[in-house]
């Protein structure tokens, strides 16, 4: 990591509860889905923070909160020390230039009725002061070239491209305004494995050349390990463990992280024979009615009465100094 860490994004204790309502005309709230429940982390310039977790653990809601597509139930997100949820319209427009997102599904994230030129040129039309009108076509072609697409395909439609090419179009659109941060919400999970590597390499090249910071959301642990400087593991709307890539993959202390890592397929058969497989029982509890105390206790083999009564704080552990939220945190070596 860079010697002087310059934080550009800080997420503080953010939470988003979605109301569960009943009735059509007179709606009454009968409960809440706690999609994200008190998540904090920060992101430095040029850094990649990976966010991993099972489906439904709140990863995408977290991304939508950072993009200001949802309003939080509580908590703040600071971009360069300014709360993004308190920003007036003009500041928000400037914020949009600095934080962009690459979406998961390249088949639905591009408007089928617009040409590639219109899709990538739209940021310039919305933020007219970024590029003068006559310059836009050239800028769009530069972007196409930059993400590895043929600049002559500017007037083609999205359906004329393959999934990997479409994801490149999405990346070019996110890059158009020269953002400082790109939130990648499972950017490769909809792609073939061979194409995944190409897109990941593209993202890494862009980071090196443009100094981008990424928030990289995925459920594929190997992909996250490859690209991330730091990794946050989420379970049921909370971060259960966060640390550098080495700490999370080499010295995990939270049982959930250990279980996740033990599920990663190992290609080497001899190594596979020796590894420590942890099988989790049961399903993820409903986020509408999460367990008391530690949220993982219903599936944890270490659970004791204290886990029901007290929620473990996310703190540095004796076993290893990175942050982990478990009463019985201890090292367990699961992957090489």
């Amino acid at each position: 990591m860079a010697p002087q860490r310059e934080t550009i994004l800080r997420v503080e204790n953010i939470a988003k509860y979605f109301p569960i309502t009943r009735g059509i005309v007179f709606q009454t709230k009968i409960g809440e889905v706690k999609a994200v429940d008190g998540v904090s982390f920060d992101l430095a310039k040029g850094e990649t923070v990976g966010v991993v977790g099972e489906s439904g653990c709140g990863k995408s809601t977290l991304a939508r909160l950072i993009m200001r597509l949802e309003h939080p139930t509580r908590g703040q997100v600071f971009y360069q020390d300014r709360d993004i949820f308190a920003m007036p319209g003009s500041a928000l427009r400037r914020l949009r230039r600095n934080i962009q997102m690459v979406m998961q599904d390249p088949y639905t994230s591009l408007n089928p009725r617009m040409t590639v030129g219109d899709i990538i040129g739209e940021p310039f039309e919305i933020h007219r002061d970024v590029a003068p009108r006559g310059d836009r076509r050239r800028k769009v072609q530069e972007l196409l070239d930059y993400v590895g697409l043929n600049p002559e395909h500017i007037s083609r439609y999205p359906h004329q491209f393959s999934g990997g090419q479409r994801q490149r179009i999405g990346i070019a659109r996110a890059l158009a305004l020269r953002p400082k941060i790109i939130v990648c919400d499972e950017p490769v999970s909809a792609l073939d494995v061979s194409i995944q590597a190409q897109v990941i390499n593209l993202l890494e090249r862009l980071q090196n050349e443009l100094g981008l910071a990424y928030i990289f959301i995925a459920h594929d642990l190997s992909v996250v390990r490859h690209i991330s400087d730091r990794v946050a593991v989420m379970y049921l709307g909370k971060v259960v463990e966060i640390g550098t890539e080495d700490e999370i993959y080499g010295r995990p202390t939270h049982p959930y992280t250990q279980a996740l890592l033990s599920a990663v397929p190992v290609p080497d058969p001899t190594a596979r024979a020796h590894r420590d497989v942890i099988r989790l029982e049961g399903d993820v509890p409903s986020p509408a009615n999460p367990p008391s105390g530690c949220r993982f206790r219903t599936r944890c083999w270490k659970a004791k009465p204290i886990c029901t009564e007290q929620e473990p704080p996310l703190t540095a552990q004796q076993a290893d100094p990175h942050l982990s939220a478990c009463h019985f945190a201890e090292l367990r070596h699961v992957v090489a």
Binding site: L69, R93, L110, P123
Partner: peptide, 9 residues
């Protein structure tokens, strides 16, 4: 793509 446009401002 509507969400994407919104994120562009």
């Amino acid at each position: 793509y509507v969400q994407a446009a919104r994120m562009l401002g």
